[in-house]
Design a protein around this nucleic acid. Structure first.
Lengths: 155, 155
DNA sequence: TATTGTTATACTCTATAACTATA
DNA sequence: TATAGTTATAGAGTATAACAATA
């Protein structure tokens, strides 16, 4: 063991909300990668597929807005899923500017598998963090998401 | 208002821990940018400067390990801060492989300003989210960070 | 042999600008 | 005029490989 190792005072970091959010997200991303990596699915892809599953025939623009993804970026993401033949994009007959996104049969099959896998990942989280704690965390994060992004710093 | 707007079922997203972590982090990043953007300071730079402030003469490697930043990436980050004359890097006399990082007087002055600004940002958070809620969130995030990143998915 | 710092590289995410087609 | 999709691009975060110097 080298000198100067492990005696760093990290008290300051422990009190930073943003830092803790980032580190917690890092742990969750590793957990996600362990579960979904073998299926070659990233978090954003899971969100997209799941959202289409619960909203069949959703418009590309609505998808982006619901997920808070810029419309320029949703294009690439959907192109990937289309290339893997998990979704289809068709021009909307009503508004020909829009594209309607649907799951293919293969996409539907994969999404059901992903939803089941995610259920197991969340159950593992409950087992480790506590069911009450998981619910409380979700509640607090939801409240945090609704905060005004412009703080009042006084003075 | 176009048809098909705003009637997307996002229930599925609301129950995803990772998704909520990411969206909450996004809000916090906007809050941080509002406060620290004018000073041209990013979150990671604030963490680095603060950590050096509470650990004078810390080694570059210790800094990276405490912040969970790859040693290849801490190089660029410190080079930026060094160029702005906020930190210095000197070869450690004891272990000549290591570099000791210190705040310059200007770096110390700026860091004190940043710490004060951050205090006000956290007080604003307490005012909006509730003091009890902020503490509870910090506690739950800390517990989350300590989770085993390899989940047990059963079956 | 292992560790520290460094350079180079690559991928993802995110954000913006500019363009076309349609409303 | 405004909106939807697209393309191109750029910055930031993150990760790995390979190398030199030092332990």
């Amino acid at each position: 063991m080298a000198e100067g190792e492990g005696n760093v005072d990290v008290t300051m970091l422990d009190n930073l909300i943003g830092y803790n959010l980032r580190r917690a997200l890092g742990v969750q991303m590793q957990r996600f990668a362990t579960a979904f990596g073998p299926l070659n699915i990233r978090p954003v892809q899971f969100s997209i597929l799941g959202l289409i599953h619960y909203n069949p025939e959703i418009r590309q623009s609505s998808l982006g807005k619901a997920l808070n993804i810029e419309r320029a970026n949703i294009v690439t993401l959907l192109a990937e899923l289309e290339e893997r033949e998990l979704v289809t994009r068709r021009t909307d007959a009503v508004d020909r500017r829009s594209r309607v996104v649907r799951l293919t049969p293969a996409g539907r099959r994969l999404t059901l598998k992903l939803l089941d896998l995610h259920d197991r990942l969340e159950r593992d989280l409950e087992a480790r963090l506590g069911s009450k704690e998981r619910n409380e965390l979700l509640k607090l994060l939801a409240a945090f998401r609704r905060l005004d992004p412009v703080p009042d710093l006084g003075e």
